[in-house]
């Protein structure tokens, strides 16, 4: 990783209120975001995600700690300097937050207007951006005439108008249906590749992270619990909070398992995408039943756990184990007497 993070957060804490009513939303957060990456921050509602992302452009002032944007500690800047820096940090929101009395084109012109860009130039750039987000034909439409996905596209165009280095997305797809979510995520990924803008995505949805993030931080109880490449963190969640989030139903043993011998298979993305279980049954000539499976496809690779009920005879068990070894699938035998 490079030595020059685009955003570096050091010892950041945020407490709302004071005295007995004080709420600690963030507690000693340390985080480095590299230029050009798509960084995800995931956590349950109330974990402090929005507060964290709002600290990145100082919409929220941290109680302690610093926010270093492109080498400058922005908590130390004057109001005027901060406004200038904010032009380099775009932001989109769950509720879109478009100006309802301006049409799409004028919404995209807005940040340029704030920055003092001449009207003609601003209009030209806004038109380009609207066509980048696929809304060239809707420039005269008012937000009330646009669908949720279209509104978010306008918001993305607006956030990118001043050529920011970073785009902050606070639950940007949480108000959208799954199909629209997909298309917005693809657009973000495309923009990241095309213009190299660093993207920070806040969400409570795993699939958003899985789909486009390079790295992820898991936030719970006001702290970052785990941080790392998406595949690594989702494959081997270490902390209790992360496991809870990733395998939302960790209590499956009680739900699904009776007395007997079981084999837990672990898919860590290194296996082929062939239908392993079906092949195993054919090759070994033994029938097994899957009592529990929680697997995900991330970037075309399979991750997760699967619990198989083993046959009675040891011979079948041995065959299965041999097959799994040959396929490079990690497993663990479990026995339940309940």
């Amino acid at each position: 990783m490079s030595n020059n993070p685009i955003i570096k957060i050091e010892g950041l804490s945020k407490t709302f209120g004071n005295g007995t009513g004080a709420i600690t939303a963030l507690d000693n957060i340390n985080l480095s975001i590299e230029p050009g990456e798509i960084f995800g921050i995931i956590g349950l509602s109330g974990a402090g995600k929005s507060t964290l992302v709002r600290c990145m452009n100082l919409l929220e002032r941290p109680t302690t700690g610093s926010v270093i944007f492109d080498g400058t500690d922005i908590t130390a800047l004057s109001d005027r300097e901060l406004r200038k820096v904010r032009q380099s940090i775009g932001m989109i929101f769950q509720g879109f937050n478009l100006l309802m009395q301006r049409n799409a084109l004028d919404n995209v012109c807005f940040p340029l207007e704030l920055a003092g860009v001449p009207r003609n130039e601003a209009k030209k750039r806004a038109k380009e951006l609207l066509s980048t987000v696929g809304l060239a034909d809707r420039e005269k439409s008012y937000p009330a005439q646009l669908s949720g996905g279209e509104k978010q596209r306008v918001a993305i165009a607006r956030a990118l108008a001043t050529n920011p280095k970073v785009l902050l997305c606070d639950e940007a797809t949480s108000a959208l249906d799954p199909t629209t979510t997909q298309s917005i995520l693809s657009l973000l990924k495309e923009l990241n590749q095309k213009i190299g803008v660093t993207i920070i995505i806040i969400t409570h949805e795993m699939k958003v992270i899985e789909q486009i993030c390079n790295r992820v931080a898991i936030i719970a109880n006001s702290q970052i619990q785990e941080i790392g490449p998406v595949q690594e963190v989702f494959r081997h969640p270490k902390t209790q909070a992360a496991k809870k989030l990733i395998f939302a139903k960790e209590d499956y043993t009680e739900e699904f398992v009776g007395k007997g011998r079981y084999l837990r298979l672990v898919f860590d993305g290194s296996q082929t995408d062939r239908p392993v279980i079906a092949n195993m049954v054919i090759k070994c000539g033994t029938v097994v039943s899957i009592v529990y499976a929680r697997t995900k496809m991330i970037n075309g690779k399979m991750y997760g756990h699967m619990l198989l009920e083993l046959p009675e005879e040891q011979e079948g068990v041995n065959k299965i184990k041999a097959y799994l070894d040959s396929e490079n699938i990690t497993y663990e035998e479990e026995e339940y007497n309940a």
Binding site: L59, R86, G95, N97
Partner: peptide, 18 residues
């Protein structure tokens, strides 16, 4: 006026007067 719209404007570097 929606607080969110004002926040978005602040995030774009708008001054109080703007």
């Amino acid at each position: 006026v929606d607080r969110g719209v004002i926040e978005a404007s602040l995030s774009m570097g708008a001054s109080t007067m703007q």
